[in-house]
């Protein structure tokens, strides 16, 4: 699914949140969105999901205006993982993951839906939490359950084997999916995202961890104050020059042997004046 936008802007009142963005997001790639707090990353994702409508311009999904697609159809084409969910969700985990199948069944879930829920929970390693109350889980576990729900929504109305989707591969939007996860599950969640991209899905992820971005991104969009500082592949975007522009912070970039991605660390001695200022 190709997402393209030309010259889109989004304002709240007079305040510009996103300013004249141009981009094409390709299927088969993990596109990572980076930027400071308040750079407009979440708004960017809301625009891609169709939740927010750009003040100027339009977003095209395979050349169709995103807002012309009915919500129930859209639900079978794209899945969204939000940063936060309502409090007091008195459901067990299996019930939460089953919600991802709601777009595909009427009254009661079928055997396929149950199978897909089970598989998605296995993929996020939350199958043992099936009957547990969602509210009683840790933040990271909750994130994995929500991720499993999103995966089950993306699986489409299939009856064949795992992930072999005859219809068009969908769009996966993740807003800081790993923020509460431990390092193992961060790798698990983003590997899954990468695997989906390799199968032709379109994946857009907001991240804060530059090293996870370097490891998993095919394309990076670096935002600052609602504008794109730079878009391109990992080594094009993650340079100390671009990062200091976007984050006001000096970063050293190491290229260890045996790794095909760079390692980024804060250049602490150079950052001291900046850090002290705040």
């Amino acid at each position: 699914m190709i997402i393209s936008a030309h010259n889109i802007s989004y304002r709240i009142g007079q305040r510009p949140i996103l300013n004249k963005l141009n981009f094409d997001i390709q299927p088969g790639e993990v596109t990572v969105v980076l930027g400071q707090n308040g750079a407009g990353k979440s708004t960017f994702l809301k625009i891609l999901s169709g939740e927010a409508k750009p003040t100027i311009g339009q977003v095209l999904l395979n050349n169709i205006d995103l807002h012309s697609i009915p919500v129930n159809k859209l639900a079978t084409m794209r899945a969204v993982l939000s940063q936060q969910y309502a409090q007091g969700l008195q459901f067990n985990c299996e019930e939460i993951v089953m919600m991802g199948r709601y777009p595909y069944f009427g009254g009661q879930p079928g055997a396929d839906d149950h199978r897909i829920v089970r598989e998605s929970m296995l993929e996020m390693q939350v199958d043992h939490l099936q009957r547990r109350n969602y509210q009683a889980l840790s933040g990271g576990e909750q994130q994995r359950v929500q991720m499993a729900r999103v995966l089950s929504q993306l699986r489409g109305k299939q009856s064949g084997s795992k992930w072999k989707n005859e219809q068009q591969q969908g769009l996966l939007l993740l807003d800081e999916p790993t923020s509460s996860m431990d390092c193992l599950h961060q790798q698990l969640a983003l590997s899954k995202a990468k695997e989906l991209a390799n199968q032709g899905y379109t994946v857009v992820v907001i991240l804060h961890d530059l090293n996870l971005a370097a490891q998993f991104a095919d394309t990076i969009l670096l935002l600052k104050q609602g504008c794109i500082v730079r878009a391109g592949n990992v080594r094009d975007v993650l340079t100390s020059e671009h990062l200091s522009e976007a984050y006001n912070m000096e970063v050293d970039i190491l290229e260890p042997e045996d790794y095909d991605f760079p390692i980024l660390i804060p250049a602490r001695h150079k950052n001291k004046p900046v850090l002290l200022r705040s």
């Binding site: 919500v71 639900a75 794209r78 969700l89 919600m99 709601y102 777009p103």
Partner: peptide
């Protein structure tokens, strides 16, 4: 009933699941 369940996740999340 299904829509009410999804609505418990949040309004936007219910919309992502295809609910008007």
């Amino acid at each position: 009933a299904k829509s009410l369940n999804a609505f418990a996740l949040g309004e936007n999340e219910a919309a992502y699941l295809g609910i008007n």
